[in-house]
């Protein structure tokens, strides 16, 4: 599960270089997210542009990643393909995360 990270001002962007986040890679994803995000900016944007498929284990791993950040930092999601967005919507996780259609949308959005 390859992740790369860049930081702009107060936002850390973590990009997923994999076409699926499923049960076979959920644990690895969670561990790599912990490593990438450690000590980073208060706002983390997870760029999911490359992700075509996510299942409930992958969804759980993203929720766990947000919890790992603690209450002082936040995790926003960008670049959701329609199917990935549908999984968030069905499970009502679209009410928990801020979802942006593209990374640019996420970066230009007010960060509160």
């Amino acid at each position: 599960m390859a992740l790369t990270s860049t930081t702009n001002d107060a936002t850390q962007i973590i990009k997923v270089h994999c076409d699926r986040i499923d049960a076979a890679m959920a644990i690895q994803f969670k561990e790599n997210m912990r490593g990438e995000a450690e000590g980073g900016a208060p706002r983390v944007v997870l760029d999911l542009t490359n992700v075509e498929f996510i299942d409930s284990s992958g969804l759980g791993a993203i929720v766990a990643s947000m919890k790992q950040l603690g209450s002082d930092r936040r995790l926003d999601l960008a670049g959701l393909q329609p199917f990935v967005e549908k999984v968030f919507r069905l499970t009502r996780m679209d009410t928990v995360f801020k979802l942006y259609p593209t990374l640019d949308d996420a970066l230009s959005a007010a960060t509160d």
Binding site: D55, S56, G60, V63, K67, L90, R92, V96
Partner: peptide, 25 residues
């Protein structure tokens, strides 16, 4: 049945979505 989302970060469910999704779809 979808677990309640809870009101705090630590209460958010990390699982229990599987059968819910199968029923939905």
């Amino acid at each position: 049945i979808l677990a309640p989302l809870g009101s705090t970060l630590s209460e958010l469910p990390e699982g229990g979505f599987g059968w819910f999704l199968i029923h939905e779809l």
